Amino acid sequence: MTQPADRQGQKTMRMRIRRWLVRINRSVPPGLRVVVGLLLIVGGIFGFLPVLGFWMIPLGIGVAWLDLRALCRLRKTRQR
């Protein structure tokens, strides 16, 4: 059973973003990940330019969320 072309495109895009997030999580220091994420989001807003692309927005949100998720967990444990 084959999937429609748009479903396969979504799966491959998710896999690519996941691979980038794993790579960034391993190589970029924690405080710098938020800055890199924000820069990716801002660059994605200018996606109509040739070098930049709209793909940078979800990647930037994911990169920034790597640190924000840890901060939310830390805050929850301190409240208890």
Rank of each mutant, 00 (worst) to 15 (best):
F48K: 04
V22E: 14
G9H: 13
G44R: 03
C72F: 14
R18D: 14
W20Y: 09
V42M: 15
F54H: 08
A5L: 14
P30G: 08
T77G: 12
L32K: 08
W65F: 13
D6R: 10
F46H: 08
T77E: 12
V36G: 02
L66N: 04
V35G: 06
P4V: 01
Q10K: 04
L39F: 07
I45F: 15
C72A: 15
L39E: 11
V42A: 15
V63S: 06
L71Q: 13
Q10C: 03
I61L: 15
I17G: 03
R78P: 00
L74D: 08
R26F: 02
L59T: 02
G31R: 09
G43Q: 04
L68G: 00
T2K: 12
Q8Y: 01
L71P: 02
L32D: 07
F54G: 09
Q8L: 15
P58L: 01
V36W: 05
R26Q: 12
I24C: 02
R78V: 10
S27T: 12
I24E: 08
G44E: 06
V63Q: 05
V34W: 06
Q8E: 15
P58F: 00
P4H: 13
M56S: 02
R69T: 05
F48T: 08
R26D: 13
A64F: 03
I17L: 11
R73W: 11
V36R: 02
L40C: 08
R33N: 03
R19T: 10
G44F: 01
R75V: 08
G37I: 00
R16A: 12
F46I: 00
D6E: 07
D67M: 11
T12M: 13
L66G: 05
L68V: 10
R33D: 10
L21F: 05
Q8A: 04
L59C: 01
F48L: 13
V42L: 14
G43D: 07
G37W: 01
R69Y: 09
L49Y: 08
L74F: 13
R14C: 03
R33L: 01
L74T: 06
Q79S: 09
L59F: 00
V36T: 07
M13T: 15
L74M: 12
P50N: 10
M56Q: 10
Q3S: 15
I24G: 06
P58A: 02
I57S: 02
W20L: 13
